[in-house]
């Protein structure tokens, strides 16, 4: 006669593995950005964790030859120097631009030892990197350009990030903003670019300084930089997640 058990061995192994998996997953998901119960954002969170867990975080994005450089469309939310661009217009920016950005400076705030303002000259003294990389837009197009700028990691090190710091938010004069985690902030190719294709950053490409995050989709690379805020907690300054977009765009 067959013995009646509450659970046979196969069932026990299966149940054990599933519960262990569920525990692991719920633990991991705490490291992912909030989902607000949206299944699409859960998928984005899974992609974020998988790409952080399975890919090399120091691997460099493909760098190209000068002959690979292509034309570069500007498809952003508007011109911060133009009063006709309702949502993107900034009077401060217009004034800075009319003076050729002589009075411009980048403000670094939040979880850093020495918060303060960095002029372009001060930033350029921190470091320099030139890279010919591909900008990949979520719309589907891509463009290759040569960028020169200051590695964001070096700027953050100079400002002295505090031990609890985990995210970096970057705000543009056009009221656009994005945040990235420390892994992308310290990626060697993540730079604050001041030069594009050998000339100082053209107006509509984000003058005087823009972010380049080469391991993510184009919309993370904030233009017209105004300030950088280092935070311990997750912030989503552009409301990507509640606005229906993925915060992490490694794909």
């Amino acid at each position: 006669m067959k013995e009646k058990r509450l659970m046979d061995r196969r069932k026990a192994i299966f149940t054990g593995l599933t519960s262990a998996g569920a525990l692991l997953l719920s633990g991991c998901l705490k490291k992912a950005p909030p989902t607000y119960g949206n299944i699409l954002r859960m998928g984005d969170g899974l992609t974020y964790l998988a790409q952080r867990g399975l890919l090399s975080q120091r691997a460099l994005a493909m760098e190209y030859q000068k002959s690979d450089i292509t034309s570069f469309p500007v498809t952003d939310i508007g011109n911060p120097a133009d009063p006709a661009s309702k949502n993107a217009y900034s009077k401060t920016y217009q004034e800075l631009q009319s003076n050729n950005f002589k009075d411009w400076s980048l403000s670094i705030e939040g979880s850093v030892k020495k918060p303060g303002k960095y002029t372009m000259d001060a930033l350029k003294k921190i470091g320099e990197r030139t890279q010919i990389t591909r900008h990949t837009c979520e719309e589907g197009w891509s463009a290759i350009a040569e960028w020169t700028g200051v590695p964001l990691g070096a700027v953050l090190t100079d400002a002295g990030i505090l031990p609890g710091a985990r995210y970096v938010s970057l705000y543009g004069f056009d009221r656009y903003a994005e945040s990235i985690d420390m892994l992308d902030a310290f990626h060697p190719q993540t730079i604050l670019a001041h030069t594009m294709n050998g000339e100082s950053l053209p107006a509509r490409n984000g003058a005087p300084l823009r972010l380049r995050v080469e391991t993510q989709i184009g919309y993370k690379s904030v233009k017209f930089l105004q300030r950088i805020v280092v935070t311990d907690k997750f912030v989503d300054p552009n409301s990507d997640i509640t606005g229906g977009w993925s915060w992490y765009t490694g794909i």
Partner: peptide
């Protein structure tokens, strides 16, 4: 782009 030898341009949509 003035420092490029090719015909690469930038344009605003």
């Amino acid at each position: 782009f003035k420092n490029l030898t090719g015909k690469q341009v930038s344009a605003v949509r």
